[in-house]
Simulated assay, not measured.
Amino acid sequence: MSTADGVRAALAEERRAAAGRLAALERELASAVEAAAEGTADDEHDPEGSTTAFERAQVAAVLDQVRTRVAALDDALARVGAPGFGLCTGCGEPIAAERLAARPWATTCVACAAGSPGGRPRR
């Protein structure tokens, strides 16, 4: 199996997991919105201490993060095998295989991602 095939498989698996999380969060948010519309939620007297509006905001924020993750995974899947895949967008050098194994959607090397002075100038 080539490096690109391994990365593609890792990305596809990560995307499947993220898509499942996205669907679950969308259902959770829809349920919370429906409950609020029915007037069954009592924000002021919630024994748990948090308001349903706060909980909806938390779910919406996580939902946005997961949507961003899915988009990044889709972008990475489209780039696998294309010229330039695995090259840092910051310095143009190859991204370490270990980094791609850990974060197959990475677009920068460790040095450029960290913003360190060790990041090499683009050729």
Score class of each variant (00 low, 15 high):
residue 6 G to P: 04
residue 25 L to A: 03
residue 18 A to P: 00
residue 43 D to T: 02
residue 72 A to M: 07
residue 64 D to H: 12
residue 69 R to D: 15
residue 12 A to K: 06
residue 93 E to G: 10
residue 115 G to M: 06
residue 29 L to S: 07
residue 98 E to L: 12
residue 95 I to K: 03
residue 15 R to Y: 04
residue 75 D to I: 06
residue 99 R to P: 03
residue 19 A to G: 10
residue 72 A to I: 02
residue 120 R to M: 04
residue 122 R to Q: 05
residue 105 W to V: 00
residue 31 S to E: 15
residue 94 P to T: 02
residue 91 C to F: 02
residue 106 A to N: 06
residue 59 V to A: 05
residue 115 G to A: 07
residue 104 P to I: 01
residue 50 S to H: 12
residue 111 A to V: 01
residue 107 T to L: 08
residue 13 E to I: 04
residue 81 G to T: 14
residue 37 A to R: 11
residue 118 G to S: 15
residue 37 A to Q: 15
residue 34 E to T: 00
residue 66 V to C: 09
residue 118 G to T: 14
residue 99 R to Q: 10
residue 69 R to F: 10
residue 121 P to G: 06
residue 38 E to Y: 08
residue 92 G to L: 01
residue 75 D to E: 14
residue 85 F to W: 15
residue 27 R to G: 12
residue 5 D to S: 09
residue 36 A to H: 04
residue 117 P to S: 11
residue 92 G to D: 03
residue 30 A to C: 11
residue 101 A to I: 03
residue 62 V to L: 14
residue 94 P to Y: 04
residue 79 R to A: 07
residue 117 P to A: 12
residue 6 G to E: 15
residue 76 A to M: 00
residue 59 V to N: 06
residue 107 T to M: 08
residue 71 A to E: 13
residue 44 E to L: 14
residue 59 V to G: 03
residue 53 A to E: 15
residue 35 A to K: 12
residue 25 L to T: 03
residue 16 R to C: 02
residue 50 S to F: 10
residue 80 V to C: 07
residue 71 A to P: 03
residue 74 D to W: 03
residue 30 A to S: 14
residue 83 P to A: 09
residue 27 R to C: 07
residue 3 T to Y: 01
residue 40 T to K: 10
residue 3 T to G: 13
residue 2 S to C: 12
residue 26 E to G: 03
residue 90 G to K: 01
residue 105 W to R: 11
residue 28 E to M: 07
residue 20 G to S: 03
residue 66 V to A: 09
residue 26 E to L: 06
residue 58 Q to P: 04
residue 123 R to V: 03
residue 31 S to A: 15
residue 33 V to W: 03
residue 48 E to M: 11
residue 60 A to M: 04
residue 11 L to F: 06
residue 97 A to W: 09
residue 1 M to E: 10
residue 115 G to R: 05
residue 91 C to I: 05
residue 78 A to C: 09
residue 15 R to T: 01
residue 47 P to T: 08
residue 12 A to P: 00
residue 82 A to K: 13
residue 39 G to N: 10
residue 68 T to L: 12
residue 2 S to N: 15
residue 114 A to G: 14
residue 12 A to Q: 11
residue 33 V to R: 02
residue 10 A to Q: 14
residue 122 R to T: 06
residue 87 L to V: 09
residue 96 A to C: 05
residue 120 R to K: 15
residue 3 T to A: 14
residue 109 C to H: 03
residue 87 L to C: 07
residue 102 A to C: 11
residue 32 A to V: 01
residue 53 A to W: 06
residue 115 G to V: 02
residue 117 P to I: 01
residue 35 A to V: 02
residue 49 G to M: 13
residue 73 L to Y: 01
residue 92 G to Y: 00
residue 106 A to C: 09
residue 17 A to T: 12
residue 99 R to Y: 05
residue 108 T to Q: 13
residue 36 A to K: 04
residue 121 P to F: 05
residue 39 G to Y: 04
residue 68 T to K: 12
residue 100 L to K: 00
residue 50 S to V: 15
residue 94 P to C: 07
residue 85 F to D: 12
residue 90 G to E: 02
residue 119 G to V: 02
residue 89 T to P: 01
residue 71 A to T: 05
residue 71 A to W: 02
residue 24 A to K: 11
